[in-house]
């Protein structure tokens, strides 16, 4: 019973987060219900659609995180696959790149297997060292040179964005050094995901309320300096209060972690926005009602998870 429903006996400090998350969801649902009753309209319908997706996302994420490393690896591997498929749909690949593409897809289970086993060195070198040599070589073998440089660049960067970055989240719960007690990695993963999403919300809210000066006028006109700084500040403060999820005791360590999640989250968001602008599309897909595609939801995570993992690693083990 406890294996199927791990949240029935999760560690005490993780329970708090579960309560907080469902508290926020329930509160918003109630708020939106009343709002719709009083003042129905298009905006609230859109918000309700988004909230409904949030319920599904939160339940899936919590289940995958709390029920142990295996479910986390499978879930994140699936997420990587969906994100990679989404981004390759928009890249105009040449027909001769298809063998290299197949290799990319087949690398996903391998990378997550290394993560599941906690083999740190293989995990870290497999994609940036070995596949970065092999994937371009697959294109060389196929023997059509026109636009090859473009294909090599696009395919490898899309691959790192959606697989290498995301797989660091799996490594958080599987690395033997970070999981001296079983709740440690789970706590760190929840901390990372919760703060990244909070940062998105904070940036959005501060941007809407105070936004005056555009920070990236060309590639992402909706982002403002006020939203960016408000996000940094707000996330650092909330991160300070969520610090009980991490094994760190010094305040500066927790604030540094929260700050870096906010900073890299913003960078990831900006990178994916820029790619979308280049493709001339608004969303990467329409798989999550109200949010767009998978990559639209995890854009900040693609950039924040790897730096987060390494900062934790350096602070804790170096």
């Amino acid at each position: 019973m406890n294996k199927m429903f791990p949240f029935l006996d999760i560690e005490a400090h993780l329970q708090k987060v579960v309560v907080v998350i469902f508290g926020i969801l329930l509160f918003s649902s109630l708020l939106f219900y009343v709002w719709k009753r009083i003042k129905p309209g298009k905006l609230i319908d859109e918000m309700i659609l988004r909230l409904r997706s949030w319920w599904v996302i939160c339940i899936l994420f919590l289940y995958a995180t709390l029920s142990g490393p295996f479910a986390t690896c499978v879930g994140l591997g699936l997420l990587s696959f969906l994100a990679l498929r989404e981004i390759y749909t928009h890249l105009k690949m040449r027909n001769t790149d298809r063998v290299a593409l197949l290799v990319c897809y087949l690398c996903i289970p391998v990378q997550y297997y290394f993560a599941y086993k906690g083999w740190y060195n293989l995990f870290m070198s497999f994609i940036p060292v070995f596949m970065f040599i092999i994937i371009p070589f697959m294109m060389v073998i196929s023997g059509y040179e026109k636009h090859m440089g473009r294909s090599m660049g696009m395919m490898t960067s899309a691959f790192v964005l959606s697989v290498f970055g995301v797989s660091h989240m799996a490594m958080l719960v599987c690395h033997p050094g970070l999981n001296l007690d079983p709740a440690m990695g789970k706590g760190l993963l929840l901390f990372l995901i919760f703060l990244t999403q909070i940062n998105d919300v904070m940036q959005f809210t501060f941007g809407k309320l105070l936004g005056r000066n555009k920070i990236l006028p060309v590639v992402s006109p909706n982002k403002t300096w006020e939203g960016f700084l408000g996000g940094l500040l707000g996330t650092s403060v909330i991160g300070y209060f969520m610090g009980f999820l991490t094994p760190f005791e010094d305040t500066w360590q927790i604030v540094l972690l929260s700050f870096s999640v906010a900073l890299f989250g913003f960078i990831g968001d900006a990178i994916v926005s820029a790619i979308k602008r280049d493709f001339g599309i608004k969303d990467m897909g329409d798989s999550i009602p109200g949010h767009g595609g998978y990559l639209d939801r995890i854009d900040s995570l693609t950039a924040s998870s790897a730096p987060f993992f390494h900062i934790v690693f350096i602070l804790l083990l170096a």
Binding site: F81, R85, E86, T89, N95, R98, L102, Y105, G285
Partner: peptide, 19 residues
């Protein structure tokens, strides 16, 4: 819409790609 990205003409390998 988009099935040609999964399996274009003259290719025997089909790959995942949203359509």
């Amino acid at each position: 819409d988009g099935l040609h990205r999964s399996m274009p003409k003259g290719v025997n390998l089909f790959l995942p790609s949203n359509s």
